[in-house]
Write a protein that binds this DNA or RNA. Structure first.
Length: 439
RNA sequence: GGCGGCGUGGCCGAGUGGUUUAGGCAGGGGCCUGCAAAGCCCCGUACUCCGGUUCGAAUCCGGACGCCGCCUCCA
């Protein structure tokens, strides 16, 4: 699968976080189901905005790209997004792009203007397939074009001629740099080969970016991706979060004050094609739901799963209680990745496990809880029982409180509980006495 | 103008011709508890509006209204 990656010209924003989580969940699920996944996601490291920023900050494009790529991977690690198997960089593929563009020129699928090389969309008979519109109606809606050398407003730049002080590469058709639409075709076909399974990206990439990629593959006579999937936006209020509106929140900021797992859960609780609104209240909602998951882990002492270790569904012990849950979750996930339904099934099972334990069916309850844990883990969401490691003071207070309670000395018991709370512990009474944990 | 998506209970969010409820969060009541916490049980009886099809529609069809997106850099 090929996931259209970021242009590293700024901090990653919430939308980047959403889509990397969506496809991380997909990838993990495919793997869990026993598919072999080759996950490729690119880094666009040469582009107008990178150049603009480098200019503005009087440093090199390479430096800017390196800085924001580092920020990108840092955020990905914190989100628990597994690194792609390959992360091709546009600048590593310039010769291949030049070669492709030259072949287009040789076959008259592209033409040269004073500022670069353009792809002639009229040479691809089914141009507009992804947009769901024929060429003519797309052309009718195109905005007024200032470049009158283009044969059609829909023609797009394959190559931009070098400008003073801008990075450039040699090419038979003149020094310059590649246009954005060419890198993904070249890199995906190189790393995944023809006829790979899935190509994904944001809804805004469907047209023109993906259409243009497809057109180039078509024009080159290569079989491209068999399937396309486009994810929805992160909304801010009623607007799409976007670079042009300047209304984006950086992922870096969010992760500084939020459990990354809450964002994963929030993302999983809506369908990948739907828009989601990320706000303090939607985050808080997810955080509370997450507390219930962690409470299950505490109650049944479940191990944290969901790191980068892949397990296979076939290796799990789906016993009586858990088999039905597993089948429901599979049905949901295999229906266009219906993660909200899968999560609902898992919460249902969570209640059932607790109820069953309340009724004293501990072994059965534990099996169900373990299945819940495995399935969340398969989607990359770890349930965390949390630390029970007590310092000396806490240990003493717990001991004293248990003694006070045994003596039915409620005043002391309550005072000792307050002392623990003041020290930052959450106090709960269990069958074996006082239980404390960190929030 | 063309194309596409959406409108579900306080909020988020699945579902889709009819059997028993999606699920989460918030709220109310109860059980448990010395009191709490955690957990469990019960409670809202919702599907923008107007027509139509049907024995029966939130679900299909038509229309209206509202919102959003793409056609321009964007995940």
């Amino acid at each position: 699968m090929y996931v259209c990656g970021p242009t590293v010209d700024n901090l990653p924003h919430l939308g980047h976080g959403r889509f990397t989580l969506v496809w991380d969940v997909a990838r993990r699920w495919f793997t869990f189901q026993g598919l072999r996944v080759h996950y490729v996601s690119n880094i666009t490291d040469i582009e107008d905005k990178i150049i603009a920023r480098a200019r503005r900050e009087s440093r090199s494009e390479v430096e800017v790209a390196a800085q924001f790529e580092a920020e990108w991977w840092d955020a990905m690690d914190r989100l628990g997004v597994i690194r792609p198997d390959d992360t091709p960089h546009a600048t590593d593929y310039v010769p291949e792009m030049v070669e492709l563009i030259a072949s287009f020129l040789a076959r008259d699928v592209a033409y040269v203007t004073s500022d670069g090389v353009y792809f002639d969309v009229s040479k691809v008979p089914d141009y507009g397939l992804l947009a769901g519109q024929p060429l003519e109606s797309l052309r009718a809606g195109a905005r007024v074009e200032e470049n009158d050398e283009k044969r059609s407003p829909l023609d797009f730049a394959l190559w931009k001629n070098a400008k003073p002080d801008e990075p450039s590469w040699p090419a038979p058709f003149g020094e310059g740099r590649p246009g954005w639409h060419t890198e993904c075709v070249v890199m995906s076909l190189d790393l995944l080969g023809e006829g790979f399974d899935l190509h994904t990206g944001g809804l805004d990439l469907k047209f023109p970016h993906h259409e243009n990629e497809r057109a180039q593959a078509e024009a080159a006579g290569r079989i491209f991706s068999h399937h396309w999937a486009h994810h929805g936006w992160v909304m801010v209020g009623d607007d799409k979060m976007s670079k042009s509106l300047g209304n984006f929140t950086s992922l870096t900021d969010l992760l500084a004050k939020t459990d990354a797992r809450a964002y994963r859960l929030l993302v999983m609780r809506s369908h990948y094609r739907s828009p989601i609104e990320v706000s303090p209240s939607s985050i808080a909602d997810a955080e509370r739901a997450l507390e219930r998951l962690d409470a299950l882990a505490r109650r049944f002492d479940l191990p944290a799963l969901g790191g980068d270790r892949f397990e296979l569904a076939s290796s799990q012990p789906w016993a009586e209680e858990s088999l039905e849950l597993y089948e429901r979750v599979v049905a949901a996930m295999n229906d266009d990745l219906n993660t909200p339904l899968a999560v609902a099934e898992l919460f249902d099972a969570l209640s059932a496990a607790n109820a069953s334990a309340d009724e004293g069916h501990l072994a059965a309850a534990r099996r169900l809880a373990q299945a819940v844990n495995s399935l969340f883990g398969a989607m990359g969401l770890s349930l965390v029982a949390g630390s029970h490691v007590l310092d000396e003071v806490a240990e003493r207070l717990v001991r004293e409180r248990d003694a006070a309670r045994a003596a039915r000395n409620w005043a002391d018991a309550d005072r000792l509980r307050d002392e623990l709370v003041v020290r930052g512990w959450i106090v709960e009474d269990g069958a074996s006495g006082t239980l404390v944990r960190r929030p």
